[in-house]
C-alpha cells in the first residue's frame, strides 16, 4: 500500500470505456486465498497471449510504475464484479491511483479501502489527460486536488472517512469495533 501522499507521477492511459474487473484480473486467477502477489495477473489477457508469451501490441506495453503510476482510463472503469482482487492486483502491479470521469461503485469503494486512489475527474480534465499521455500530475489527498502540469487541474471528491483513514492510518475495522455497545443495543431492539 502506498504510504506517502501526495502522489507525484506521470500518467499511463488506457483509453477504452467500461474496462471491467474481468479485464483487470481474469476470474481464473481468483482461486487464491491470499491478497498479495496478484500484480502478475493484472490485465493478464491484455499482456499475454494463450501460450503465456507477452503480446507485442498490449495496451500495457511500456508501463513502468517507477515513471508513471497514475492510471487514466475511459468512463466507467472497474465495472463488473465485486472482486477486491482488482485493486490488489493494480496496486501490486504498480498503480497508485486511477483517474476516470466515472468509476464503478464497488471498485471505487474497494480501491479507496486499499489505498489505490479512485479519482473521478470532470470530463474536460479527463479528455485532456487522454489526449496528453504521460502527463505530470500531483494528487494531493489532503487538499483533494489534482494538479496537472500544463493542463486543467481539478478538485475531486473522495468519501471523507476513507480519506481520513488513508491519511491518518486509522482503521475502519477498529472504528466499527468501537461501536460494539451500540450494535448490541440495536440488536436488542431491532434485529
Amino acid at each position: 500500500m502506498p504510504e506517502t501522499f501526495p502522489i507525484n507521477s506521470r500518467t499511463f492511459n488506457l483509453t477504452g470505456e467500461n474496462i471491467d474487473t474481468d479485464q483487470i484480473i481474469p476470474a481464473r486467477f481468483l482461486t487464491t486465498t491470499s491478497r498479495t502477489g496478484l500484480g502478475r495477473f493484472a490485465f493478464h489477457d491484455w499482456r499475454f497471449d494463450g501460450s503465456g508469451s507477452p503480446r507485442a501490441n498490449s495496451p500495457l506495453s511500456g508501463f513502468d510504475p517507477t515513471r508513471a503510476s497514475v492510471l487514466v482510463a475511459g468512463r466507467n472503469f472497474g465495472c463488473g464484479s465485486s472482486r477486491e482482487h482488482a485493486p490488489w492486483a493494480l496496486l501490486d502491479y504498480g498503480f497508485r491511483a486511477v483517474i476516470s470521469c466515472e468509476i464503478a461503485d464497488i471498485f471505487r469503494s474497494n480501491a479507496a479501502r486499499n489505498g489505490l486512489l479512485p479519482i473521478v475527474a470532470p470530463e474536460t480534465a479527463q479528455q485532456w489527460l487522454l489526449d496528453n499521455p504521460g502527463a505530470e500530475v500531483e494528487i494531493d489527498l489532503e487538499a483533494t486536488r489534482v494538479t496537472i502540469a500544463g493542463g486543467p487541474g481539478f478538485d475531486f471528491d473522495i468519501e471523507p472517512f476513507a480519506r481520513h483513514c488513508l491519511l491518518s492510518g486509522n482503521d475502519p475495522m477498529g472504528y466499527l469495533l468501537d461501536q460494539t455497545d451500540e450494535i448490541r443495543q440495536f440488536e436488542e431492539v431491532a434485529a
Binding site: 491478497r35 464484479s81 465485486s82 472482486r83 477486491e84 464497488i106 469503494s109 474497494n110 479501502r113 486499499n114 475502519p172 475495522m173 466499527l176
Partner: peptide, 10 residues
C-alpha cells in the same frame, strides 16, 4: 448488494 472482501471482514 455486493461488497468487497475488506467489507466481508467488517
Amino acid at each position: 448488494f455486493g461488497i468487497g472482501t475488506t467489507e466481508v471482514g467488517h
